[in-house]
Structure formats: C-alpha cells, structure tokens
Design a protein around this nucleic acid. Structure first.
Lengths: 244, 244
DNA sequence: CCAGAACTGCGAGCACTGCTCTTGTTCTCG
DNA sequence: CGAGAACAAGAGCAGTGCTCGCAGTTCTGG
C-alpha cells in the first residue's frame, strides 16, 4: 500500500532476490572451500536450512548454479585486471602488463577454485551460455587496451614471427572493437588482436601450470618463474618488460 | 607340472594380470568417451560383467584407478613427444620443437579427456603419488634435450629477460641431470632448465586455452594460432622458429 | 593327499548425489 | 474474498563410492 504502480509485488520479489543472493553466497563459500566438483546443491540447501527441492525454485539445475558462479568469477578476475591496469597507468604498457599479470596470479592463488572454474577443465556436459562471454571479455579488453597503447607509443618490436595481419582472428573479435566488416580492420589492429591472444595464453598457461602442480620439483621460486614467463612471452610480441 | 620353481603360481597371477589389463582398457575407453568426471567404477565393472564390489579386489579406489590412467596418459604424451623429436632430428632444434609441440597438440585434440586428466584441473582431493612423476618427466626431457642441442649449436639468443642462472629451480630438477649438489650446476644448464619450463608452459597454455574453449570467437584458425604462440614463446628463449 | 590359508567374486547395504513429482501452504492481486 | 500463482517440503528414483559378510576356488605346506 505504501508504494504505487511499480512496487506492488515487491514483497515477494525482494524476498526472492534476497534468498537468491544468500544462495549464491552459500554456493560461493562452498566452492571456495571445496572446489566445483564437490559443490552439491543439497549441501547448499542445508546451509540455507531449506529442502533441496526448494532450491530448484530458484536455480534450474546444478549446472545453472555453476554458470552463475562462473560469471561472478569472470567478473572478479576482470575487475582485478582493470584495477591493476588503472593503478599502473603511469609506468607504461609493458610494466603495466606485468602488474596486471601479477594481480591476476595473486587472485588465482587466493581463490584457486574460482580460477579452476573458469580456466580449468570445463564442467562436463557444460556449454558456456552467452551470459558468460560478456564477463569473460573484460580481461581481454584490458590486454588489448595495453597493446593499443604500446602500439601508439611505438614500443612494439616483436621478436617472434610477424603474423599475417588479417584473416586469422574470428570476425566477432573485431566486432566488439566496432569493426562490422572484418575487411576494413586495419593491419595493426589485427596484429594487436593476435598478440593479445598470445599474452592471454601465456598468462593462463603460467598460472595453470603453477596451480595445477606441474612445477612441483621443477621451479623453486614460483613468483619469479611467473615473472620470467610473462616477460618472455611479452618480449615475443614486442613488449619489453624489465624485471626488478 | 610342466614348469618348475618360479612358475607354479602363474595360473592365478596370470588371470589377475589379464583381468587387470582388461579393467584398465575398459576404464580408458570410458574415460576417452565421457571424461574423467563421468568415469564410474560401477560402469567399468558392468562393462566387464562383474559386480562393482569385485573390482575393489584389483583397484583400491576410484582415485587409484584414475592414477593408473594418469600414468598411462603421461606416458602416451611423452612417447608422442619423443617420437616427434626423433623424427625431426635433422631439421634443427628450433623446428624440431615446433614439430614436437604440434604432435602434442594433435594428441591432445585426439584424446582431449586424457589431456584434461593430466594438464587440466586436478581431481579433487587427489595428490599425485610419486608413481606419476617418472612418466610426467618424459615430456620435460624432450624439451631439455632440444634446448641443450640448441645451446650446443650456439643458436640461443634470447629476446626475453636473461634470467638469473642459479638458485631459481628446485634442486630435484638438477638431480635428474646428475647434479647432486645444486651449487655445481653450470650456469648454462640452469638457464636451460628455466627456459624449458617456459616452453613447457607455453605448450600447455596454448593447448589448454584452445581445448577449454577460450579461443571461441577469438581466433579463427586454431592451428595457425597455435604455431604463432609456440613460435613467439620460443623466440623469447632464443629459439627462432620459422613458420612456412 | 588333504587341511588350512589365501584369494576371488557376489549381493546387500550405507550415505551421498541430481533431479522430479505430489502435496500442502502462503502470498498476491483482481 | 477467493482464484491462482509462487513457494516449501517430503518421498522417491536412479545413480555414485565404498564396506562387509558370505560363499566358492585355488594355492600351499605338512
């Protein structure tokens, strides 16, 4: 009675929204604690003190719940990268990339199960719905931004092979940059796209390898090894990072 | 009566060994078909026409069965790498590395679930027993061998940062090369070790990123992108690969 | 040769999972 | 107020890993 028109059905909706966020919080807690494989809908229901069947009023399936957590994770890592890039604006794109990479690694080490959720083995039978790509793109855009800036500064001098500039990336990759017709994409933009993918790969690779235990008894100082790996890959695309 | 001394208990042992290999074959088949998460001991038992409880006479747990498959997978990928390196002996270490990387990628694409099993998210609650490291090392040794060869040829001219040569790798890493005292490891060997880790990281990273769907709508020609990524990383450690 | 030990397989059962369906309750809105 | 939507709970199904007791088989040593 207090609110007109738009508000009448708020009571229930608010309860729903509240429970939904509690549900997500509980799910995230279990995820961080035990990993995605052990995330059980029944356990989350118990945490909330409700029957497991009731949870299905809010989430259509366990996979859907995971999808929500995946989006959260993509956003979290994207936000971390954006923040790191913003903080490092003055030290130049090469050192900024190192800062971003370190921040992402830090995030991954702090919440390994969230990292696994998005960059590890995909959940079986799971195909990423389009809801996730928007969030997944945030990290990419940070990388591309840094490369564009470096290109503008004339810093880029790749040590690796110089790539065919056109036709190697998917058209959608350019669409987000505003190029509706792939044939109009300038060569340097195309090159930037490929290079960004290489940087992305080295970042995910370096963290995965460390987090999944493949450096066990191989490297000793993981942080240092990470820096070296990132710097090496960056050098390949023309970003010269100086370490310490 | 036919065989003396050593052979009398063969009947049982042979049956056991035979069933064990059938069991592994069935498990591998299910793994390749549906992935490690869906690998159920009961299903394997059904495939063999025996009760699930009987399987526990041969394998102590599901995780132990996975461990066996993990070792098989490590050996398979190691064997693939060794073969590729042997076949490419004449084209020089740089191009040989490209050939090895391509062969490993091919293997991963052909049996993605096996790749995931060893280089994807580790199975929850699972800690690799020492049985696996021996097999896991085979791929490393191929990489190190190629780098040593390249170092001997004087090809290496890293574009990336020049690493501190000593103290960065774990002592065990050198032990396998015969250096019991890490302080006696020559600088160039230490550098080779770090570089091998970088190459390894780029290889695993490039395959993971492709296989786990992160290039979806980003790259178009995955094989080409893979080559570029490998060549870029290789350039960072001084291996100059030329792509056709 | 044959008794006892070791090995092998089976079925039932426990606790857990995702998910569905039915029943009953509560809220909302015309 | 009263119809209908939204909600919560419980039972139940099919599946999982794993354990235990019971039965048969095979090997081994006296």
């Amino acid at each position: 009675m207090t609110e007109p028109a738009t508000a009448p059905l708020r009571a229930r909706e608010r309860a729903r929204a509240e429970l939904m966020s509690e549900l997500l919080a509980a799910a995230r807690a279990r995820l961080e604690a035990e990993g995605s494989a052990a995330l059980s809908l029944r356990a989350v229901a118990r945490d909330l003190g409700m029957a497991s069947s009731a949870v299905y009023r809010y989430v259509p399936s366990r996979d859907a719940l995971l999808t929500l957590l995946i989006i959260e994770a993509y956003d979290a890592v994207g936000q971390v990268a954006e923040q790191a890039a913003a903080d490092a604006r003055e030290i130049g794109p090469a050192q900024a990339w190192l800062a971003v990479a370190r921040a992402v690694r830090r995030w991954a080490l702090d919440q390994p199960y969230s990292f696994e959720l998005i960059y590890g083995t995909p959940v079986r039978g799971y195909r990423a719905p389009d809801d996730t790509v928007q969030s997944a793109l945030r990290l990419w855009q940070v990388i591309i931004g840094l490369l564009m800036e470096a290109g503008g500064d004339g810093i880029l001098d790749p040590a690796g092979p110089d790539f065919d500039p056109a036709g190697r990336m998917a058209p959608e990759a350019y669409a987000s940059a505003g190029f509706t017709d792939p044939s109009t994409v300038p060569d340097d933009v195309a090159r930037t796209a490929i290079r960004s993918a290489t940087l992305f790969t080295s970042l995910v690779g370096a963290i995965s390898v460390e987090l999944f235990g493949h450096l066990h008894r191989v490297a000793e100082d993981y942080a240092r090894f990470f820096d070296v790996t990132i710097a090496t890959a960056a050098a390949g695309v023309g970003l010269r990072i100086s370490l310490d």
